[in-house]
Design a protein around this nucleic acid. Sequence first.
DNA 1: CGGATTCCGTACGATGCTGT
DNA 2: ACAGCATCGTACGGAATCCG
Length: 322
Amino acid sequence: MQPLRRGLRPHALLDLRPLDSEPLAVMETTMEDAPRKSARRRRDEKPSRQVGRLTDRDLAVLELVGRCRAVQTPIIAALHFSEPSTCSRRLARLVGAGMLKCHVEHLNAANWYTLSERGAEVLIAEEVAEESLFTGRLPSAETLQHLERLNEFRAALTLACRDERLGASTSCFLADHDLRRLSGSNTPDLVPDAIVQITQRGQPPVGLAVEIDLSHYSPRIVGKKGHVTLALQQARAPLWGLPHGWRPLFLAPSVARLRGVARALVDEGAGDLWWGSSFDLVAARGPLGPAYASMTDIAGTPRGEPPIFARSVLPTAAGGGA
DNA sequence: CGGATTCCGTACGATGCTGT
DNA sequence: ACAGCATCGTACGGAATCCG
């Protein structure tokens, strides 16, 4: 399997433009009249070939895109295809059929896909819950940065749950866009980037509130979130439907950032409740693997020494429970 | 010396060819 | 029709090189 994560280059997320702003007819006439530049379709031109019969996998891909709000090619390929080229070919057909919209940021960056209205109609006809689907514009660049990380986490979790030996399954995955839609106008103060519930054979379900951190906020602001979660936990209150026993997971770009945030969370008394890890560690060890450390442990590790990330969110795995 | 240019490596998706 | 492999076209970053 290809790696899920690729480095975000500085130019990425700039100059996002929708692909299908020009009708197909225009493209056909220019190909006859003007001297042909290339036999190959440009990435930002709409594919002319349409999908024939929709397969189960096509529907699964459409549903993935609709649920995630926007997804990049490598995620779709990792979850549903054995070959990236097969994936991109199939995606082009789905775009050609108007089921998906393709957004090209740069030629050396992966395409983003969003679900079209037509794609949503097809899914709803297949009895996919309408309220779980998102269509419309490509989100802002900042939202996309979040979404990219969240999608990676979601995909890695899906892949980990496919491992029969683990016996785990994701019984709930609600992203922040789901939570905001669910709560309507009275959105609570605390909206995690995802609410996740994982069920493992013979074990009580594990509830997680995932925070995707991009170092945009000061540790003090994260500390405030720690304060809110601690109050909820001490009141044994559920969090977005997760029963008492849930735990916030803080995923950061670097260990240095984790250290900075860990101190603020420990100061709020949430150092044991909150666990943290880096994107790289979660990618390397898996979201259900021994990839986490408590914020108390991270803050307590002397400078110059790397914190030990050995905890797992699953009670039966190495380092789990606690 | 410092900016411009060139070259190389890498990344991405598109597609030709071939086998199922 | 689809999938897999190999290759191609386009673009970027960075190092090396050129040149005033």
